[in-house]
Design a protein around this nucleic acid. Sequence first.
DNA 1: GTGAAAGCGCTAACAT
DNA 2: ATGTTAGCGCTTTCAC
Lengths: 348, 348
Amino acid sequence: MNGANAAGLRARRSRGSGRVRIEDVAEAAGVSAQTVSRVLREPARVGVEARARVHAAIARIGYVPDLVAGALASNRSRVVAIVVPTLANALHAGSVEGLSDAVGPAGYQVLVGTTGYDRGREREVVRAFLGRRVDGLALAGGLLDEKADSLLRAARIPVVQLWELPDNPVDLAVGVDGMAVGASVARHLVGRGHRRLAVIGHAAASDTRSAARARGFLDTIAVLGLPTPRLLESARPWAMQDAAGLLGPLLAGKQPPSAVFCTGDQIAIGLLLGARRAGIAVPERLAIAGVGDSDLAALLTPSLTTVGIPRYRMGLEAGRMLLRRIAGEDVTPPCLDLGFELIVREST
Amino acid sequence: MNGANAAGLRARRSRGSGRVRIEDVAEAAGVSAQTVSRVLREPARVGVEARARVHAAIARIGYVPDLVAGALASNRSRVVAIVVPTLANALHAGSVEGLSDAVGPAGYQVLVGTTGYDRGREREVVRAFLGRRVDGLALAGGLLDEKADSLLRAARIPVVQLWELPDNPVDLAVGVDGMAVGASVARHLVGRGHRRLAVIGHAAASDTRSAARARGFLDTIAVLGLPTPRLLESARPWAMQDAAGLLGPLLAGKQPPSAVFCTGDQIAIGLLLGARRAGIAVPERLAIAGVGDSDLAALLTPSLTTVGIPRYRMGLEAGRMLLRRIAGEDVTPPCLDLGFELIVREST
DNA sequence: GTGAAAGCGCTAACAT
DNA sequence: ATGTTAGCGCTTTCAC
């Protein structure tokens, strides 16, 4: 028999990992391996006495179930993955944390991949995750060329896209309407009497979120019949330090804008601090609005007008949707719009 | 033969995942499964012709290697895990990103677990990670009671502890000397002529990092023979918003401190902004120093004196150390002190 | 350079 | 309520 004195045999075996296995527990508890497995996964279906013996044996010999083997056998990995551009942005870090908190209690772990706003890396990361048999995938990258898209659809696993609400989602989506965000800020600034406007966004073509906000802003200004806002772009996304350098170009020319919409708070904050250093009165000479409602926005002087985005909740809802889908339940609606909140403060 | 028409059989099989398997590739390329496996892992040891046929087959039928099965067979998961208190803190998020960047190119993925500064959760997370057979583990939690400690040592996998440089590390460590950080700030403030000092730290007993900095500060003040600084604690870690509430207690009494050391930048920034709102001159009436060199520190007016901690590099080095250890190489020194930098700015 | 056989540790399906 | 059998898809070992 294999199980007769497994430990002794294993020590001499060439390939074994040296782990305490379920069979070792079974032997120690005087039951079959299957019963041990049941105690761990469906305790109700096992007799009280056997259950107790198994638990005692587990504690005694220090058994840690091998989830890799379990995943292979059951075809469920109990892992969900999330792909983000970077963790340096609090918006994304918050989403990862929300996802983690949503799935953790259900016994799931979170695999995190970063893309650095690069399509190629995103595809690689997605491929690797699929190879890991993740049970669900959250995408905050939003890049997804055709190849990645077909890869995902072929994988037949629950997928939730974050931030944007795509017209043709792979599967599920949770986010906010970026164009509406931009439009909302545009109406606010115009309502405050501003006519000469500017937008600062993220230059990389890959950041579709920033682009959507800028587009919503510009479209609204156009509809209102106002002059086309000046559009500036920061080299790196969300880098506060870049903002100072943008101040010059922004205010150059004969008719400088009286208000600027930044598609992210980082830039807005950098701009606001830079303006203060340079003695430019905010909002009198330049009104500034951002997006993200970072911790700082409320604390600055002047405090920053911004748009509140439920970043943590986005991850949380994404996790819940994935879990429901994994459990085979209906997920309605498949596209969840979390909405946003224009928070008017002193900077506009 | 099983491989003869595998696809047909699989459709009718009860358990299969429906995946394209290595054997399907083998059949399509007219070689054995073993050769396919070699093409993927040791291409040099396969004939050029066979190699080409295999690559063509992989692309044609859309094969994605199953890393779970691979992990089970090879006893290496190609996953490293990192445990952090929270991702909401840029310091930790930066470390995770560094780790990810270090191991990604080597084909490793990163599993992230958050503890919320809770020992029980940390133990659970570590257990789950060990069950996943992670090839290496980075711990930024720093909690580690005896139980978790013995669990780790028993697991016999590379472990690297972040931030602190423990006297008795489980395996490897990379970080900065927290007491030295506190001492450095203490000497700076005293050098500036301050005699009545205060410290604001994180209340939770579980945040040993904050505690070490505070201790280093207090010890140094004691050695210099100055009056014992007032010690305040913020309820939540690093919450900017808490700082405003701390301003009152801080400046109460007859002999309020003329300088305060915050063990984290978040609090320092909150305090600085709150002081400005309240019309308290910084640094004339109250000097403020923090730790972390957050993006903001340099941009504020007045700019914040703080201690630069190489958060990203910490994750990066941790990843490199783990990879070296996994590859069976020597890792010297096992405890890597990354050092820190006191950045004196306008707030002190 | 290539292939056949034997597991990795677990769970699903079927039995009792 | 519990046990038996047969894989999950891959890599390792050993043979050619």
